[in-house]
Design a protein around this nucleic acid. Structure first.
Length: 206
DNA sequence: CCCGTGATTTAT
DNA sequence: TAAATCACGGGG
């Protein structure tokens, strides 16, 4: 059962990306598929700062068919296909026409593990189900038809508040993954994860 | 470590 | 119209 007031609302998502990225840790992503709840706690995120950030799709104000969603209001979800295979789930933050986002990189799965396993196929252990952004897209059954959905009002895809702020756990900050092309932005400490959590993605930043 | 994958973007 | 790029993951 999902009470509407348990969900994260517009005010939460209309903050800056580094703030939302930190505060999303231990909140719960929910996707209802054919009446079943697929859910888990977010344990790793990355902030993408918008027009100034060379790692962001919206760098320099780039506005194309794909990046258009980044210009939507905070709370909209931005899903894009990466390397031709992986569907990456992001949350647009800040305000309309200010193209900032947070990438959800790892989740501690809590509900619907059997359905996740069916979609992930090869995955065996729980910590292999959602320990990376592409794995999350597969495990949660998220694809490009979910792009531009409003997480604040949508009936089947949303984020529930399961953690208070300030957080009662330690947060590790380090550089983001897979953006070596981004020059001085490649080393900015915009990746956040729950310290010691076994579900974070294991790739080491160089 | 290396490489598939294919839509999107950018260069001719 | 063609080429390059890429918020990754799986198998060695």
């Amino acid at each position: 059962m999902t009470s509407p007031q348990k969900r994260l609302g517009r005010r939460f998502f209309r903050q800056e990306p580094d703030v939302v990225a930190r505060q999303l840790l231990n909140q719960t992503l929910v996707h209802i598929v054919e009446g079943n709840r697929i859910a888990g706690k977010i344990v790793e995120t990355e902030a993408y700062l918008g027009v100034e950030d060379k790692a962001a799709h919206s760098y320099g104000g780039r506005r194309t068919a794909r990046t258009e969603t980044m210009y939507a209001d905070g709370g909209t979800c931005y899903v894009f296909l990466n390397y031709g295979i992986h569907h990456l789930f992001n949350v647009v933050v800040a305000n309309h026409d200010d193209p900032k986002a947070v990438l959800i990189r790892a989740i501690d799965p809590t509900e619907g593990l059997d359905e996740m396993r069916q979609r992930r196929g090869a995955a065996k252990s729980n910590s292999d189900l959602c320990s990376g952004p592409g794995k999350i897209g597969a495990a949660f059954g998220i694809h490009r038809s979910h792009d531009a959905i409003d997480l604040v009002t949508n009936e089947t895809l949303f984020i529930e508040r399961t953690s208070a702020w300030p957080a009662k756990f330690d947060i590790v900050e380090c550089q983001r993954i897979g953006i070596d092309y981004a020059e001085e932005w490649a080393t900015a400490p915009l990746r956040y994860y729950v310290a010691g959590n076994e579900h974070v993605s294991h790739r080491i930043p160089r």
